Simulated scan of single mutants.
Amino acid sequence: MTQNLTTAPPLHRLTAEEIATYQRDGILCIRQVFDADWIEELRALVAQDMANPSGMVKDINAKGASGFFFGDTFVCHHIDGFRRAVFDGPGAALAAQAMEASKINLLFDQILVKEPNTSTPTLWHHDAPYWPVAGDGICTLWLALDHVTQDSGAVEYVKGSHRWGQRFKAVSFDPDQQYEEELPPVPDIDGNRDDYDIVSFDLAPGDITLHHGLTLHGAPPNGRPDQSRRAYIQRFAGDDASYNPRPNLQKMLRDPGLEAGDPLDCDLFPVVWRR
C-alpha cells in the first residue's frame, strides 16, 4: 500500500492536558475531528462495503439476536476510498500526538455497524491481545458517523485499565470461534460496575475517541428503532511497536512477511505518518 504520508498539519492539535488525559485514563474524546465532507464520504464508503464486503467480513451477531451487527476489517485494502481516509485524514497525526510518537503505522482499519434494534452487545475486552503486536504504543481511533448515545450503543471505557499491568484473554465476537491464549478472563465489569471508573461519551458525527490498546471497553446493544450506529475505526501503532506473532490471534489479511521482534514497517502495516 504505497501512498504519500500525511504531511498536512492536523486540524486539531492536542493540548498538554489532553495528552495527559490519554496517558492517564487510556481514553480521550475529541470533538469534530472529521469534517462534514469526510462524514459524507465515509458513510457512502460504509454503504459500499456493506453491499460488497471484503473476504475479512465475519458474523459477529450473538445467537438468536435481533437486528444486525456488521463488521469488516482491513477495508482500506478492499475499497480505495478508505485508503484516502487513512493517509489523508486527521487520525494518524492525532494518534501520534496522544502517544507522543515520531511515526505511526496503520495496523488495520475497520467498519462496525449496529443497525436499529440490534440486540448484540459488544463484550468487555481490550484490543492488544487480539493482535500480533508488542509495545505500549498501540491505540484505536473510533469515529462516529451517526449520533451515538447510550441508547444506541455508546462505547464504555474503564479509565486507567491500560495501566493495570495485566492482559486478559481475548473475547471472541464470532460465536463459532474461541481464543486459546493462556491469559485470565476479563473481569465481570457489568456485575461490579461500582468497582470501576467507567466513562462513555455521547458523540456527534465527526467526533472521535482515542483509546489505548489495553483500555478495557464494551458497548450495549443499539436499542434505538430509528438510528444506526455506524463507526469507522483506525488501529494505530507508535514508535515502540514490533511484530509479535502468537497462535490463535485475530486473523490478519495476510502474512506480513516479518520476523518476531521486527519493526512493523511493511505493506500490510504501512507507515502512514512521520514527524
Rank of each mutant, 00 (worst) to 15 (best):
D267L: 09
R43D: 09
K103C: 06
D239Y: 11
F236K: 10
L210Q: 08
P184G: 06
Q234D: 05
S172D: 00
G71I: 00
D202A: 15
I60H: 15
Q48W: 03
D262F: 08
M252K: 00
G261H: 11
A85W: 05
P10G: 11
A154T: 03
G213R: 07
K251N: 07
E40P: 01
G64E: 07
N248F: 07
C29D: 00
V186D: 05
D262W: 02
D262C: 12
F70A: 10
L143R: 14
R193D: 02
P247L: 05
Y243Q: 03
S102M: 04
K58C: 11
S152W: 07
K169L: 12
A144G: 12
A219W: 13
M50V: 12
A51L: 11
E18I: 01
L216P: 05
Y179K: 01
A101Q: 11
P9L: 01
A170S: 14
I208N: 01
L11I: 10
I30G: 02
R274L: 02
D202S: 15
F173G: 02
T21V: 08
D207K: 11
Y243P: 01
R275I: 03
K63H: 02
R43Q: 13
A128F: 05
Q166R: 13
R24P: 00
K251M: 09
H147K: 15
T7D: 10
L107N: 13
G191M: 09
D194I: 03
L14N: 08
L141N: 06
